[in-house]
Design a protein around this nucleic acid. Structure first.
Lengths: 137, 137
DNA sequence: TGACCATATAACTATTTAGTTATATAGTCA
DNA sequence: TGACTATATAACTAAATAGTTATATGGTCA
């Protein structure tokens, strides 16, 4: 996938800027991603679809709370679910999501590394995680 | 940029899952994106760096409110600023951000389109925005 | 210097949200 | 059927957040 092509498309969808409505939708989705417990849930679901109990094992916390977070992820369109007998199985709705998380993960990781370097005496810098061959931008 | 390579990198950074610390950082960034006014601000800054007054022109609202949102974007690491005499000029800190927004924009746009089709009589579907050649996943 | 910009921040209110406990819903299995 | 399991939801509290008005900070220009 080509980045500029993609953004070109996004602009083409809204040549004179986004509508309030779609901006609200986009914000909703980002907000759904803006909570550590929900990120933990998604990390689990990136591995494979999972029932609530399985998710609960991965995240800890109370069942009620995880259930609520799942509802939020669902209303943000990030996960879907189906009933399977007694259980409810959730999965990642949108394949672009993993990509999305990776981009932020990468950016945050890079910045953390830069900060670490700024705090690290120059002499030791070459020993700090050398392999950052992947760039997001 | 290759998606799988990118996510591979993200996983490599945290082979046994993210730390609480970095998950919190990532959430902070997503949360900063989870508000329509802030998205509006970013839309303006994607065009070019801009002073607060210029941003204000693009977004509307009060100066105090925009200033507060800029502070939030800044603390999330999404924008930077420099003083220029009387003014403060803000710009997008991270080139991956535009990409990020494009991915979500695209996903939301695609879903909206699917919903629209679901609500549209079959006979008219072929007339609905045909060109969706770009895919996010 | 003083009047005037541009921007940031403080103090406040109303709303939203995460987390809790208790309970409701609905499937399974004896 | 009744006990049990899995999940969702309601009601509540505490904390976070968006927006407001008023004010502080710091540059510019006469």
């Amino acid at each position: 996938m080509d980045v500029n092509q993609l953004f070109g498309y996004a602009l083409a969808v809204a040549p004179s800027g986004l509508t309030d409505r779609s901006r609200e939708r986009i914000a909703l989705r980002f907000r759904a991603l803006g909570e550590p417990t929900r990120l933990k849930i998604l990390e689990r679901l990136f591995r494979s679809p999972a029932s609530v109990s399985e998710i609960l094992e991965a995240t800890g916390g109370t069942q009620a709370n995880v259930s609520k977070h799942l509802a939020i992820l669902r209303s943000g369109g990030l996960v879907r679910r189906r009933k399977e007998g007694n259980r409810t199985v959730y999965w990642i709705a949108d394949p672009s999501l993993e990509h999305l998380c990776a981009v932020v993960c990468d950016a945050v990781g890079r910045e953390a590394q830069e900060e670490a370097q700024a705090l690290t005496p120059a002499a030791t810098r070459r020993r700090v995680r050398g392999g950052a061959g992947v760039r997001a931008g």
